[in-house]
Amino acid sequence: MRKDGLHDPKSPAIKQLQEPREALSRLPPDTTGNMVRWVQALETGVIQPRPSLKPGVEAEILDRDILLDLKGSMPIILFPHKRHTQWLACANCHDGVFEKQTGATKMSMFQILAGEQCGICHGAVSFPLTECFRCHSVVRPGQVKPAIPPGLPRSHNLPGPP
């Protein structure tokens, strides 16, 4: 924490705050971002984050996959509602960031890379935007999975997930 570039090494908090390693190293490891597979951690019960401050409130899960970008040249995007509603409320995205109706919101990587739409979370807290094929995951018929363009920054120079 002393050397993370953020914390003031002179701050009295350095001795009191928990080191990230101590809390996060027990969680399922990832190869990028902050090196934790959060969805897996939640689904396997390694962590049990509370869905509300009020007792007895359950998370509202919607188990519906959406396919996006049907006409583009990258593999099709599979958006799993389930994994998103495990963490978020419907109102976090609908209707503000995204319209409820599939295809009604015009999406672009330009906006996403500028920190809008998916980029509000992905690239900031959830897995980074350099992990192209975690979203562009459905290869079109007759298509070969394209290679990640060289020069994209990665947290660690490790091979991505298979």
């Binding site: 705050l17 809390a23 996060l24 969680l27 934790v36 984050p49 869905p51 963490w87 409320a89 976090n92």
Partner: peptide
């Protein structure tokens, strides 16, 4: 302030802060 996002994520789902609070 340094807000450690992921210590909070272990304990609370995103919606608690970003929707409820």
């Amino acid at each position: 302030v340094v807000f450690p996002h992921l210590f909070h994520r272990i304990r609370f789902r995103c919606k608690v802060c970003h929707a409820d609070i």
